[in-house]
Nucleic acid binder design. Sequence first.
DNA 1: CGCGTTTTTGAAGCCCCTCAAGTGTAGTGG
DNA 2: CCACTACACTTGAGGGGCTTCAAAAACGCG
Lengths: 260, 260
Amino acid sequence: MNRPSGRTRFRLDEVGSPNALIVKIANVAALSPVEIDLLEHACDHPREVPAHQDLLREGDETGSLIVILRGLACRYKMLPEGTRQITEFLMPGDCCHMHIIVLDAMDDTMATLTPCRVATIPRARVEELVATRPVLARSLSWAQLVNQDILKAWMVNLGRRNSVQRVAHLMCELYVRGNAVGLVADKRLPLDVSHAELGDALGLTAVHVCRVLRKLRLAGLMQLRAGTLTMHDLPALADVAGFDGSYLHLAAATEDQHSV
Amino acid sequence: MNRPSGRTRFRLDEVGSPNALIVKIANVAALSPVEIDLLEHACDHPREVPAHQDLLREGDETGSLIVILRGLACRYKMLPEGTRQITEFLMPGDCCHMHIIVLDAMDDTMATLTPCRVATIPRARVEELVATRPVLARSLSWAQLVNQDILKAWMVNLGRRNSVQRVAHLMCELYVRGNAVGLVADKRLPLDVSHAELGDALGLTAVHVCRVLRKLRLAGLMQLRAGTLTMHDLPALADVAGFDGSYLHLAAATEDQHSV
DNA sequence: CGCGTTTTTGAAGCCCCTCAAGTGTAGTGG
DNA sequence: CCACTACACTTGAGGGGCTTCAAAAACGCG
């Protein structure tokens, strides 16, 4: 009811320039050609970043807005004991939130997991866009709140589900999110993430993640191998996980794409 | 560096009308008398709500902004199995976030834990305030992002800390937050919350929470009894928990108050 | 005082962790 | 092309932390 309406439903492969940020925003808001152009140019001069590289460190003074255009990134916090907790996975179109604009210091670290194409939008430019383009301001705010709902879903996962449900839930989420930005083809999602990284996101050890993945594989629900997630039976997996994707606030239109 | 500067540092008992929302915002932004007056009147006609009552349910269409003026509230999500996860504790001055304005449906349920005084600000009024008063817009945005950092701290708690550290960390957080809104006196914070509720927040059972609390009590660090938390040794407890309160983004000024 | 709820304590069990060794698999240099 | 290395994945055995089940004690409230 409240979502900026009149979505254009771009796909990554349908837009002239495949800018994931535009795809994501266009899926929920009606962007004018002018606004698309503005975003396009704001993401000019992207850079390629190798895997496992910090993009923004905890405690850094906040500055520009960082957008993932290709690849997989994350946010994490380290503990004194040396363990870490991944708090967020970032896919193409996702960006570090508006901490950048409002708060004075980063609370966690942002890093690549795979090689990434990354755009940096200077703070002044973001503030200008937000001030002059209400649709963009609202869209960024929207993205921010969706993110918050994802955090809460992860909390439920960590606090109240066992290991099998946890892994299943995360796989469902990543698959649906990937699908929404056009990354899924033939029930396969590129997902080059190690067991240790999954463990750090799920509050489990790499060893146990491995055992759980085997269980899910043997059950014929899904398979994670060689950097790709193959989703054999999404409904069944969602059932195992207790997954209800409404917290992702995706247009319904994006959900029926997964049927090949 | 980025925080709206020139804070006035109100305390609950120093302001003519003890409005926790104003206290909280005034601690981080320079409010003009006009803006204080606007907030004051926006919170007109608060209502008293009994304990354990839902204020806003998951799936509800979003509407007005709800502010806690007195008492303790929370947000939680239920799972199909009947278990629940508390994702947030709300103290005086805290409010349900801007979901209200931007998203179309609530993602979780907001409920009282103790009897509360609650103000409701109509959506139109919030939008008006945000549009005409940049300081207020920025302050709400700020509150929102601080909230997000708290969520992440909880995720770390759930994912990577054992039961003792978890309980200790939550107690540290609540104590420091309570102190920041002037709820702490003589090292004591009113905290009328059951073991079951703590368990639902920490991903533990009530039984185990009880055991952990005993440990912390016998260690002489803190005591939770009869609805009040007595903090005997905050530095030691913070050390046990690995607690670093910077994620709360409180003015440093609020932190030295606890040394009564 | 009596009742319902919460807290407390005990005993047994399971889930996930830890430690450890073995098996790929990709990249490097001979 | 094949060692060699580094790293991630896999599988097994044993242990510990938290849960579950159960019942008694304490508390709060009419």
